[in-house]
Simulated assay, not measured.
Amino acid sequence: MRTPWRRREPLDRVELAGLLPGPGDPELPRDRLTALEEHLMNEIQQHQARQQSDPQSDPQPQPQPQPWPQSDPQSERSAALFPPPPPVVERRSRRRIALIGAAVAVAVLAGAVGLGRLGPGRESEGGGQAMVPAPVVRVVPGTTQGLGSTVDRISVAAGKERQTEPGPGQFIYIRSQVSWLSTDNNVDSGETRTWVQKLHPREVWLSPDGHKGWLIETGNGNTSKEGMGLDSDADPYLSAPSYDYLKTLPTDPDALLKKIYAESEGMGNGKDQEAFTVIGDLVREQLMTPELTAALYRAAAKIPGVVLVDEARDAVGRSGIAIARADEHSGERTEWIFDAKSFSYLGERTVQVREANGIAAGTVTARTAITERAVVDGMKAAPGKGKA
């Protein structure tokens, strides 16, 4: 005999709370949120680059990657383990994300959108990124002893550098070798593996006013061989600057640092870490007057937590000393590397100084090396060689 149907009464909230485990904190760390945003931007850019290089290969519109699929059971499990973060007010422009290009296949998305599993020297199924095991180095302790005198030498060297002023129709050209972090997470087994992109070239062209630009970075899966435009109608600001805008900044270190704190308030993992990050972004992939560059280094030395590291190597193996600061939240230490004799800027390195998020201490999660910085006569022109 069939059991008569009865309407189920909802459980009392107190009773339900007793049956279920307590809720966790759904808010992801700020560095993971940034990683999510940058990965999604890279997925979109890769799709657009493929269409630009071969318009007939993809005649039908394809759905954009969704970070939290609703129908796939594995994706639903990922969404349950890693709930979507609350809305975040993001003040950094899309153009800045493209310029920095810190493309990471985040652990959450590796399970949620089915990124290809990676092995040594292999490429992901859709990303076009050649991945290798992340290098591990000895974590050299940092110290404040000698920091002031070293920053003075670096600032004096920067102030003496000769620089070509970009004129109308010219572009700032920066070539570098880069590699960024990727984390591969198996949501079924819980296993996490950390890889980095294979070291690859990156070329950026920027107009002095910041409204026109071009990026070629095929090894990151960001662009096709022809590259992609970075044009922007937005007014430049500190986190998405232009050469002309940077010329308006104060060159007094105290006034400069005050402005950086004000402009970056509420962003990143604390005001001191974000101020250090802003300065590092400017130094790495911009052209500035020698006076401003020197002032930025002196301003950085005033940030609490900044230390001197007497041994570091950039992405192409050049050794030097480093001005560094460790992020208390992520356990990563960002190091600006300088030649130990000439005190010229070489590049940047990020090292995990303590185990966090499954990444062991000593793991190098990002590497850059600036190999050329010049003023050229046109978009996609190479120094001394005309059009690239």
Rank of each mutant, 00 (worst) to 15 (best):
258 K>R: 14
244 D>A: 15
241 P>G: 00
223 T>C: 03
255 A>R: 15
247 K>Y: 03
240 A>N: 15
238 L>S: 01
220 N>A: 15
237 Y>N: 06
235 D>K: 04
225 K>G: 02
213 G>N: 04
263 E>L: 07
251 T>Q: 15
226 E>L: 12
248 T>S: 15
237 Y>G: 10
229 G>K: 07
241 P>Y: 02
245 Y>H: 09
217 E>C: 00
218 T>E: 13
213 G>H: 02
211 H>A: 12
256 L>T: 01
251 T>N: 04
233 D>I: 15
229 G>N: 02
237 Y>F: 11
242 S>L: 03
255 A>H: 08
261 Y>R: 04
231 D>A: 04
225 K>P: 08
265 E>N: 14
219 G>C: 08
231 D>H: 07
230 L>E: 03
215 L>H: 02
231 D>T: 00
218 T>A: 12
234 A>H: 00
247 K>I: 04
233 D>G: 10
243 Y>L: 05
219 G>N: 02
267 M>L: 07
245 Y>I: 07
262 A>G: 08
215 L>E: 00
266 G>M: 09
226 E>V: 01
222 N>Q: 14
233 D>V: 06
236 P>H: 03
242 S>W: 03
215 L>S: 02
215 L>W: 03
237 Y>E: 12
214 W>A: 11
265 E>H: 08
230 L>T: 09
244 D>Y: 01
267 M>Y: 04
214 W>V: 03
258 K>N: 14
248 T>H: 13
212 K>C: 05
257 L>H: 04
260 I>N: 00
222 N>C: 02
218 T>W: 06
267 M>S: 00
267 M>Q: 07
249 L>E: 00
231 D>G: 01
247 K>C: 11
213 G>P: 06
212 K>T: 01
260 I>D: 03
243 Y>G: 06
232 S>P: 09
214 W>N: 03
229 G>V: 05
260 I>M: 03
256 L>A: 12
238 L>I: 11
233 D>R: 11
257 L>F: 04
250 P>T: 15
255 A>T: 10
230 L>I: 10
228 M>F: 10
210 G>Q: 09
237 Y>V: 08
240 A>F: 06
225 K>A: 11
260 I>K: 07
210 G>Y: 10
226 E>H: 10
217 E>F: 00
234 A>K: 01
266 G>Q: 07
234 A>E: 15
220 N>V: 11
238 L>K: 10
211 H>I: 03
227 G>I: 06
220 N>T: 06
259 K>W: 13
260 I>C: 01
255 A>K: 09
265 E>G: 02
223 T>A: 04
225 K>S: 05
216 I>H: 00
266 G>Y: 01
243 Y>N: 13
235 D>A: 02
249 L>N: 07
218 T>D: 05
228 M>R: 08
226 E>K: 09
243 Y>S: 11
230 L>M: 15
249 L>R: 02
256 L>G: 05
211 H>E: 05
212 K>N: 10
257 L>P: 01
249 L>D: 13
256 L>K: 12
253 P>Q: 13
221 G>Q: 09
253 P>A: 13
221 G>R: 08
249 L>P: 11
264 S>W: 08
229 G>E: 07
239 S>G: 05
259 K>L: 15
235 D>I: 05
212 K>F: 12
248 T>Q: 15
